[in-house]
Design a protein around this nucleic acid. Structure first.
Lengths: 128, 128
DNA sequence: TATTGTTATACTCTATAACTATA
DNA sequence: TATAGTTATAGAGTATAACAATA
């Protein structure tokens, strides 16, 4: 339990540092990460991140100004706004992910292959 | 690797929610957590959290106003400021820790005792 | 000169409340 | 009426730069 919390802070520090090196907050990075899988609506993003919709408006607006994503009224429901990554946004999130994985490799590298599989299995059970 | 990052976000959400229920940010909670072990100086806190010293001034000032900690010039080095928990601060951080552990129990409870030991061992190796 | 900390400033993150537009 | 989103506002978190006090 204590080890879980300690590791959480440790990993968060890595993520925060790398995101900041690209002028991204951890939250902005997560927004890009969600959109990497598929476009989403504002409400969907807010729910996933546990943030208010007004907070999402600000986050998305700043990211849009930087050219990382685009938003537009949904044709299905004209109240709704669809948000999607731009090419630039996708490249940025891909680059950040590579850096994150590179940064975590020294840690994960302390485990042998069998231990890594074991850890993944345990964590998947945990956060299933 | 991916499981580590996902679990990190999951645990962070739990920590953030419980801290917020006590009007604490995650950072404030970490400040209290550090001071729980021992009093510290401003610079030490900032270094540990990876924050600028000016950021620490604000964090500590707000926590002091709430009566959670006290600060005072160090007798050893009169430039330095020692920060320590108040009784109220200690009770708060203890209460929050209990809630955090309670909230994580359902997750960790998905593992049997042997798996929990195994997980702790792997995470300790990881973030050693 | 170097270190410790605070303050002024500016920007981001965040929630609440009030609002508009659509369903 | 209810839902989706924006805007106005206020407060916290954050860093940079300039400063004061001490070493």
């Amino acid at each position: 339990m204590e080890a879980v919390v300690r590791t959480t802070f440790r990993v968060t520090a890595v993520l925060t540092r790398i995101a900041a090196a690209h002028d991204l907050s951890l939250t902005q990075l997560r927004v890009l990460g969600i959109l990497r899988d598929r476009p989403s609506r504002m409400t969907e993003l807010a729910a996933f991140l546990g943030l208010d919709k007004s907070t999402m408006s600000g986050l998305v607006e700043r990211a849009e100004k930087r050219g990382l994503l685009i938003r537009g009224r949904s044709p299905d429901d004209r109240r709704a706004v669809d948000v999607a990554l731009t090419h630039q946004g996708r490249e940025l999130v891909d680059a950040v992910q590579r850096e994150v994985y590179d940064a975590l490799t020294p840690f994960v590298g302390k485990l042998d292959a069998a231990q890594r599989r074991q850890l993944a299995r345990l964590l998947n059970t945990l956060s299933a």
